Amino acid sequence: MQKSLGFTLIELLVVVLVIGILAAVAVPQYEKAVWKSRNTQLKTAVRSVVQAQKAYLMANGTYASSFGELDIDLPLDAPAVSAGIGNTCQLITTGPDSIRQGKDFYVVLNNSSAASGSISAVWTSGKFKCNGFGWTPHKEDKLVCIESRNGTATSKNDEFCQGLEQGTPGELRAAWQRYELP
């Protein structure tokens, strides 16, 4: 009698099939976990600027329109080009010092009459480009998830805020869909 020392073709195909099924389930879950972790960085940046804006309001009676006015130390840089040119997500800015850039994201102060004191932070590249988080003091005074509806986003509608952040749809404001976060 001869002893078999290898695997049959069927056994190898079953192993490859099982590995493929596991990968099909695990990769999307891994990607979702990575984006949730990255979003924590964006939320932290917004919350830091919110606290600085509130302190500025208490001291001056108005909101800051530039980062130079805020008492905050963020590890972010001014964009290399002017805000209008470097702002790929078409965020409203009030000047070159009202926008800061991190790795793959922008944080923007908006002190226009319609959105005085509001803050937005969005991804500038990747799967969720032009989606992120915002804060407006007058209406909700809480962090909200925002998705661009002006044609600059790279994800499907509701994929970021509802799918990833479990947000509840709110109002559509100036081509930005807002979602309340849990």
Rank of each mutant, 00 (worst) to 15 (best):
R38C: 01
V144K: 10
L42M: 11
K54I: 14
L13S: 09
R47D: 14
G68W: 08
V81C: 07
Q101F: 07
G95R: 02
I92N: 02
L70Y: 04
V46Y: 06
V50G: 09
P169I: 00
S155H: 03
Q162A: 10
G68R: 13
C130K: 05
S125W: 08
G86Q: 03
A174F: 13
T152F: 12
L13D: 02
I92Q: 07
A153N: 07
N60M: 00
V108S: 00
Q51T: 14
Q162C: 06
F128L: 02
S155D: 12
R38H: 13
V46W: 10
N131G: 06
I19H: 07
L13W: 01
S148V: 10
E31D: 10
Q51E: 15
K3I: 06
N39W: 04
G20F: 10
M58F: 15
V15C: 09
T168G: 06
Q51V: 12
N157L: 08
V144S: 08
L12K: 00
F105Q: 11
S37N: 15
P137L: 08
R178F: 13
G61L: 04
Q101C: 06
A175I: 04
D97R: 03
V122S: 10
K36R: 15
C145G: 12
T62Y: 04
A64M: 04
L181H: 11
R47Y: 09
V107W: 04
P182D: 15
Y106G: 02
A33H: 09
S155Y: 05
A174M: 10
G84S: 04
L12R: 04
N87P: 06
S116G: 02
L57G: 05
A83R: 03
S125Y: 03
D73N: 13
L57H: 12
W176A: 14
I99T: 05
A45S: 13
G163M: 03
Q51C: 04
Y179K: 05
R38S: 11
Q166A: 14
R47E: 15
C145T: 09
M58L: 15
S65G: 12
I21H: 05
F128E: 03
V49N: 00
C89K: 10
E11R: 06
